[in-house]
C-alpha cells in the first residue's frame, strides 16, 4: 500500500521539479521520507499577500492518493480560510462526506485523481480570493468583509514577517 503511495509521490515530485508551476516550489524535506513535504508559495500578485513567500507543510497518509494529505502554513498568516494554527480549510483537502462547515458540494472534494500541484494551485487562488462564507478564522473573515483596509494592513504584516523583515 505504502509502496504505491511512494511511487506516486516520487512521480509527482519529478513532475513538479521538471515542470514547476509559477510561484510554487515543493518537495520532500528529506529524500528518506517522501511522506512529509514542504512547499513555498508566493503570494499572488495584485493581492494583499503579494511579495510574500509562505512556507507550508504537507503530510501524506500511507494510503495516498486515496486519502488527501494534510496541509498547514508554517508561518504566520491571517486569512479567512486558514485556521489560526495554520491548518488550511479548503474543499479539495476534504474527503467526500466530511464537511466540517457544511458549504461544499462533493464535486469540489478530494478524489484520487487530484494532485499536489492541484492542491497548491487551489491554495494560491484561495489566497487571492478568500471565501468568507466558510470562515476557518472568524476574525479574519469578519475583517475581510467589514474593514478591508485593516485586513490588507494585517496581510502586509504577514508578508513582511514571511520574508523575515
Amino acid at each position: 500500500m505504502a509502496g504505491s503511495a511512494l511511487k506516486r509521490l516520487m512521480a509527482e515530485y519529478k513532475q513538479l521539479t521538471l515542470n514547476p508551476p509559477e510561484g510554487i516550489v515543493a518537495g520532500p524535506l528529506d529524500e528518506e521520507n517522501f511522506f512529509e513535504w514542504e512547499a513555498l508559495i508566493c503570494g499572488p500578485e495584485g493581492t494583499p499577500f503579494e511579495g510574500g513567500v509562505f512556507r507550508t507543510q504537507l503530510i501524506f497518509p500511507s494510503d495516498y492518493p486515496l486519502s488527501p494529505p494534510k496541509m498547514r502554513f508554517l508561518c504566520e498568516i491571517f486569512h479567512p480560510n486558514i485556521y489560526p494554527d495554520g491548518r488550511v480549510c479548503i474543499s479539495i483537502l476534504h474527503a467526500p462526506g466530511d464537511d466540517p462547515l457544511g458549504y461544499e458540494s462533493s464535486a469540489e472534494r478530494w478524489s484520487p485523481v487530484q494532485s499536489v500541484e492541484k492542491i497548491l494551485l487551489s491554495v494560491v487562488s484561495m489566497l487571492a480570493e478568500p471565501n468568507d462564507e466558510s470562515g476557518a478564522n472568524v476574525d479574519a473573515s469578519k475583517m475581510w468583509r467589514e474593514d478591508r483596509e485593516e485586513f490588507n494592513r494585517v496581510a502586509k504584516d504577514c508578508v513582511r514577517k514571511s520574508l523575515g523583515l
Binding site: K7, R8, A11, E12, P65, L66, P112, V113
Partner: peptide
C-alpha cells in the same frame, strides 16, 4: 491518473474514466 504509472490493465465505468 491515480498512481501515475503506465499500465496495460486499465478499467473504468461507462463514464470513460
Amino acid at each position: 491518473d491515480i498512481c501515475y504509472l503506465p499500465s496495460q490493465h486499465m478499467n473504468g465505468l461507462q463514464c470513460g474514466h
